[in-house]
Write a protein that binds this DNA or RNA. Structure first.
Lengths: 361, 361
DNA sequence: GAAATCTTGATGTACGTAAATCAGAAATTC
DNA sequence: GAATTTCTGATTTACGTACATCAAGATTTC
């Protein structure tokens, strides 16, 4: 049996009330007594039963999540995971309110942050846009003492408490490494590689490009970066044009989100395909393209993990416990057609019974 | 405020006792009344507060984990994660007893299963050895109604309730895919690939080899499989010999555990290295080898995830809730030197504060 | 040495659920 | 219609912690 507060009281030779005062840092305990109680706690190895404590406190953590709108598959998946966390029988006593703002709109994000602030939640998670007005709003949130976590897309480290997302520079490097190996090594030949981004105004995209460049050997020539604004139609035109004008392109790295256009262009293209196509984020589209050999590898960040990590960190910050950064690091997944995970049941028809875990895996 | 049992009682016009009888499937409720209560539950959207319920029940789940001894890094990591789960402030009310048995010893595993059975735990997890006496013991465990989960290494599906591990055939395919691409494509040349295994008597190893074979194009020649028995010294000799006798070997796939020997041999070797070396399981050794460019890729199964998944499944089975298989599928991670996760803090000196999550990610 | 303050104990209620007991009411059997 | 069985309500205790209140003891202050 785990020791309880009663055991502490017996061990320290004090009353329950005093133990309680020590445990909850309430005033009115002599230093000597406090030390005795703390020694007893250490001696019997007491750990507070958080479930019982939260029950007694009937505490809830009201959190606000701010996500971009739009038909970006990844972001919709992210939203799905947030909704799942909202629906989950508040076993973790988390009450999330979800705010959707227009995509790529710094002003809108800033407004959403200010609006969330006045609700005085226990924490805010936001998919940031790298704009000065957002930073200002983030600083205002922090100034009011509300923990702030950036999700997927970061801000400067000084504007938030934590970033729940991948190291995009490392992701770019990984893509570069894979690319270098996938295009093969034809001795003394320079390979032509194309990069497709959404917008160079987004920090993630810049970081990925930088990492990608740093990992590619000098025997590769990078074509000027194509910016498709994460728009399928525009992206498709760009890629079709690329394939027509550069039949020798050995690899394409799509570091943004407009993968539907990329896939469509590759599908329509009649000539020889690039030897390696690497994209980001496992969505139904990229998954299908992997299976159809239109894409060779997909780098992925697990949206579910990111959401759950953000919640854990916000809770820890709200409780004043320092989050263990190393523990919350989000992995860069590499998927080939051979190691695709089971299709996410939420994309299909299967409903998960409530109550069972959150697919931590 | 979330609805409580009192709200159900009010809504259904019955007493608390009756609500309790319905909720906990106790007898003594007329069908008509039961339906009324269930309708009320659905109407107000009641979900049981599991924290409070477990508190009231003061229920614990005694589980037994059976792991192999030996200095296999992966297994020791697995043990570490089990111990972590044991140490975790029984927030999840799980009481694990850990049994270590000699490695590759079917009889020992069978004895451990029988010994665990008489303790009548709420569930057993075992790193299985593919031997008939183990299957028999597993069937005896199941016959006595104790949920049984195989961990990392499977048995026949009929002998256990769940397998918490990766699809080793898919892992082999993934390795094959990577190998094919990493060795590059020299037109009209047959590449020589070597496979290093621990023992072909282990099911995982057989499955991986089969998957690997199926993914390699026909332009590759597989040398006869080397069996190092997961022993560093023996493995080192085998690989040194291989490199001496086959200077043209383009790739090595190490699908077992004796990676220290492989790495040592590669390090000592003076001639040109194989173009691609792929190994399994991210351990301090393989990690260092990745960083030193001695190994090109490591396929990994996350031991922490496997342990936590096993616990979740055992708990679900113990409660009679069907586990959601899709949700518990373990991923095949691919690591290059570029996307290595942060070194596991438990390998170093940093202690994790109790109470925070389990790195669910 | 009386008054003020600080420290501690004793006790009770609460959180949401589980589980047991006992007493009636209702339905069934003969 | 009496005896039995089945169903339901009312009430209580418990889980481990939080929190508030009141009283009494110990200590300090002037």
């Amino acid at each position: 049996m785990r020791p309880t507060v009663h055991d502490i009281a017996a061990e320290a030779g004090v009353s329950l009330a005093t133990v309680d005062r020590v445990l909850n840092r309430r005033p009115g305990v002599k230093d000597a007594t406090r030390l005795r109680v703390e020694a007893a706690i250490a001696a019997i190895g007491f750990v507070r039963d958080m479930a019982a404590a939260n029950l007694a406190k009937s505490r809830v953590y009201p959190f606000t999540f701010i996500l971009p709108a739009g038909d970006n598959s990844f972001m919709r998946g992210l939203e799905r995971h947030v909704r799942e966390a909202m629906a989950r029988p508040a076993a973790d006593r988390v009450a999330i309110s979800l705010v959707i703002v227009p995509p790529f709109d710094g002003a809108a994000v800033a407004r959403a942050l200010d609006a969330a602030k006045v609700q005085d939640p226990a924490g805010i998670a936001v998919v940031a846009v790298d704009a000065p007005e957002v930073m200002d709003a983030a600083l205002r949130v922090q100034a009011s003492g509300i923990p702030l976590v950036t999700l997927v897309s970061d801000l400067g480290a000084s504007c938030r408490d934590h970033f729940a997302g991948i190291d995009n520079h490392a992701a770019g490097r990984t893509a570069g490494s894979l690319m270098r190996r996938f295009v093969g090594r034809v001795p003394s030949a320079t390979e032509t590689i194309a990069v497709l981004a959404g917008s160079m105004l987004v920090r993630d995209h810049r970081d990925r490009l930088e990492g990608f460049r740093s990992a590619l050997s000098e025997t590769c020539t990078l074509l000027p970066v194509l910016e498709g604004q994460d728009d399928p139609a525009a992206t498709e035109r760009l890629i079709a044009d690329l394939l027509a004008r550069h039949p020798d392109v050995a690899g394409i790295y799509s570091l943004g989100a407009g993968n539907r256009g990329l896939i469509a262009a590759l599908q329509r293209h009649s000539g020889p395909r690039p030897r390696a196509v690497i994209a980001h984020e496992l969505t139904p589209h990229t998954r299908a393209a992997l299976e159809a050999d239109l894409i060779d590898a997909v780098l992925n960040q697990d949206a579910g993990h990111e959401v759950r990590s953000a919640i854990r960190v916000l809770k820890a910050k709200a409780d004043g416990i320092p989050a263990v950064e190393a523990q919350e690091r989000i992995r860069i997944d590499i998927f080939l057609k051979d190691n695709l995970p089971f299709p996410d049941e939420a994309d299909g028809k299967v409903l998960r019974p409530s109550g069972s875990g959150s697919g931590e895996n």
